[in-house]
Design a protein around this nucleic acid. Structure first.
Lengths: 210, 210
DNA sequence: AAATGTGAAGTTGTTCACAGCT
DNA sequence: AGCTGTGAACAACTTCACATTT
């Protein structure tokens, strides 16, 4: 295992790793085997120095005078991100957004497997449109244990979010993708990523006014 | 109109404005009229100095010794963000994710009105589950002109994203919420916010490995 | 010659410390 | 006395400049 002081690596650098990985895959599909930081950086929309700096947080992967081996760099990024093996995920909260995410099969394509969908009122969502059985909350524990789930997608209403988050963390979840528009308070060792679509639109709205 | 050099205001500060606004609304609903930076900051998950600094980018809104007037601050933030009036939005690309976003009615709740949904192949999506008529791309121009649309949500496949973005920008769109996993290249005056759910999961994945 | 890797410089964003109102 | 507003100090992140390797 790569020895790095993880706290010193900017969170943003880790996000960019995902971007690089996508660009590299496109290059690979185009039959390109070697790429310079200049070219890859342009594809990723960053400066080449930033790309090189980002990579050196994790080690040395290039050949001076030549560039980076595309395949090898893809390998190393997916190893770093832990996306080499299929990661099990649960979705909690199957209202409008949760249902939307369930029918969006994008997660599966990217190395994540939704192993369960849960809701406080599962029965009301047993419609034809729901592509997966929705289970009641009391089955959460079994599923999390069975699949050793470390990640959860949280789509419950804001009033319930903190409580459900506590429950998930109690069951061993250490990473939460939170769609509820509240600030979750969690222990330091738990990672929360927030996504708020309304907030993204509001932010854009600001820039529309000249 | 408030006179500020917009480029000097951190993008993150504008995101936080959305957070503050949500917290303030909760306070208002609880019948609270005045709030100190200390209390509001705690609710928003930031330091009180940061809250105060963020607000002073836009002016002075508090009363020393007292705090901020909840209603007035809500007003001022929604004016700044341009969310006082309903903002028309189009969705382009009605595949899995686009359809998911259409059925998720969250945008409407937050001051945005979806005035049109477009797809290169509209017919194939005319299912019972789609809550809105999906129009062909050649009707985009009419709808954008009619509603004076400045914002678009882009959910097309990555291969089409740049081209569709160009088209939108040509029709007068100045703000794009991009769900396609590519880096759009756009003129400086256009604002793009990227949301990539797979990337958020990948990022979490990194933090799971201890 | 070409391109990486990296300490140092520069830039941006956050926090502190406290002056200044109410 | 209490709490805001803000210049100055600090921290985080990005870019530069160039030494180093192939």
């Amino acid at each position: 295992m790569k020895k790095v002081a993880r706290t010193e690596i900017p969170r943003k650098a880790i996000y960019r790793l995902s971007v690089y990985s996508r660009c590299l895959n496109r290059l690979k599909n185009n039959g390109i085997h070697t790429v310079s930081s200049e070219v890859l950086a342009k594809a990723a929309g960053v400066k080449s120095t930033q790309l090189r700096k980002d990579l050196t947080y994790f080690g040395q992967f290039g050949t001076r005078g030549l560039g980076y081996d595309v395949k090898q760099l893809i390998e190393m990024i997916s190893e770093l991100l832990g996306t080499k093996s299929l990661q099990p995920v649960v979705i909690v909260g199957v209202g409008n957004l949760g249902r939307a995410l369930l029918s969006y099969r994008g997660f599966e394509r990217e190395g994540f497997e939704i192993v369960g969908a849960f809701d406080a009122k599962p029965s009301q969502y047993l419609t034809a449109e729901t592509p997966m059985e929705v289970q009641p909350m009391n089955e959460l524990e079994d599923v999390i244990n069975k699949h050793v789930v470390k990640m959860a997608v949280l789509c419950v209403p804001p009033t319930a979010a903190q409580e459900v988050a506590n429950q998930l963390i109690g069951l061993g979840v250490v990473a939460v993708l939170n769609f509820a528009p509240i600030v979750l308070s969690v222990p330091d060792e738990i990672t929360v990523n927030n996504v708020n679509l309304a907030m993204e639109l509001e932010n854009l709205s600001y820039f529309i006014n000249e």
